[in-house]
Amino acid sequence: MSALSEVFDRCRAEDRAALVAYLPAGFPDLDTSLEAVRALAASGADVVEVGVPYTDPLMDGPVIEQAASRSLAGGFRLARVFDLVRAVREAGAVPVVMSYWNPVLHYGPERFASDLAAAGGAGMITPDLVPDEADAWLQAADAHDLDPVFLVAPSSTDARLRSTAEACRGFVYVASTMGVTGTRSAVGGDAATLVDRVRAVTDLPLCVGLGVSDGAQAHEVAAFADGVIVGSALVRAVDQDPSLEALRTLTAELAAGVRR
């Protein structure tokens, strides 16, 4: 059983959803980002997504895009992402990487999978890679016991939902709305409907992302999803308060929301 399967089984036994927290690596600098991912784990995040900064983040909204730009401008290099993965694992949460495909392709899928597994990573989310074009990654992930996680969206056909879910391990990333990431005043109305559609084709845990920004929204999503993914709100908390107290407070609020 993979580390992701174990954490979702534990959350299910506790009759709650998992909190999946995202932060980009190297933002606002490497040392602070290391402390930030540790703070996520200590404050109640079950799974931590370590984001790989990228120059062309098609899916990311302005908050994450600007954070990634600052990380790259500060000299962040892809190999340092494994330092954050180790930090998450040592802090007690399950680490996964979230990366666009091009950086991994340039690094080498086999080499990336090997280094990710050695650092204690459980898998990788690839927002711009579809299973039909993912043979190289699926082979590398299989070889190193990593869970590949792909995305589904409200626009996905039933056939696409099935084929995507069949390619996933660990969980399926359910994008609750069309468009880029970012906090929203309300969770997308299509989220629960999409979760129902995906449940019809897989028994994997379903984690909903794109839009959750506070404990109340986390509680709302936890009522129908197996995991609640939060990104932009956490990035904004780091940006506004480099002491990370705001990050700890928000993470604790979100953790309470999925546990209510």
Rank of each mutant, 00 (worst) to 15 (best):
L4W: 03
D15A: 15
G26N: 08
P28I: 07
D29L: 07
D29W: 02
R38P: 02
L40D: 01
D46S: 03
D60S: 09
G61S: 08
V63S: 14
E65P: 00
Q66W: 13
R70E: 15
L78K: 08
A79E: 15
R80Q: 15
A87V: 09
R89D: 12
G92L: 09
Y107L: 07
F112N: 05
F112Q: 04
G121M: 02
G123L: 00
V130H: 12
V130R: 14
E133Q: 08
E133I: 01
H144W: 14
L146V: 05
P148W: 11
V152R: 14
V152Q: 13
P154H: 14
S163I: 10
E166V: 03
G170P: 03
Y173V: 03
V174N: 05
S176L: 02
S176Y: 00
M178I: 13
M178A: 11
G182V: 06
A192H: 10
R199P: 01
R199W: 06
L204W: 12
L204V: 15
G209N: 09
H219P: 03
F224E: 11
F224W: 09
D226L: 07
G231T: 10
V235W: 01
V238N: 03
D241Q: 06
A246R: 06
A246D: 08
L247I: 00
T251R: 09
E253M: 04
A255F: 13
